[in-house]
């Protein structure tokens, strides 16, 4: 480095910052910017699942990860374990396994609490099962 280039040495990192930001935000906006779509999706998924299982809206998390070749939409649903269900869209044949809560709930002697009072108690005591659902798509 000669003297002149030392004095002229530019520290122009701002243009790099600018380009990186533009690129990154183009991606992020497509992902979150569609946060409306994500919110819509969330509502619709809650509605569908709620037909079959008692889920809270907060029990469903949706995340979009956008990659260059492939993007993933991650849907995470928490369901009380007695009502556990497994869904895997990546499996060759989507299988849906549900455990019938009525059939599996222990039957009680007539002196015990009423069966229908057991449901909520079980649900509360149950640890929560996570159901992950991955959808991969070409980006």
């Amino acid at each position: 480095m000669n003297l002149i280039s030392f004095f002229k040495r530019p520290n122009t990192s701002a243009p790099v910052a600018r380009e990186r930001l533009k690129l990154m935000l183009a991606h992020e906006r497509a992902a979150f910017g569609a946060s409306d779509v994500i919110a819509l999706l969330q509502d619709e998924i809650v509605a569908v699942i709620a037909k079959h299982f008692p889920v809270e809206p907060e029990a469903i998390k949706i995340r979009m990860d956008r990659g260059d070749a492939i993007s993933t939409l991650e849907v995470e649903v928490e369901i009380p374990t007695p009502l556990c269900v497994n869904i895997s869209l990546n499996a060759p044949k989507p299988e849906l396994k549900a455990v019938n809560s009525e059939a599996d709930a222990p039957r009680l002697a007539s002196s015990g609490p009423k069966p229908d009072s057991l449901g909520p108690a079980l649900a509360n005591a149950a640890k929560r099962e996570r159901v992950d659902l991955h959808i991969e798509a070409d980006g």
Binding site: N11, A14, R18, L21, K22
Partner: peptide
């Protein structure tokens, strides 16, 4: 610093 290219300029941030 923005003038020297060390920091994003007003126009950059506004454009983004």
């Amino acid at each position: 610093r923005a003038e020297r290219g060390e920091m994003l300029k007003v126009e950059d941030v506004l454009e983004i």
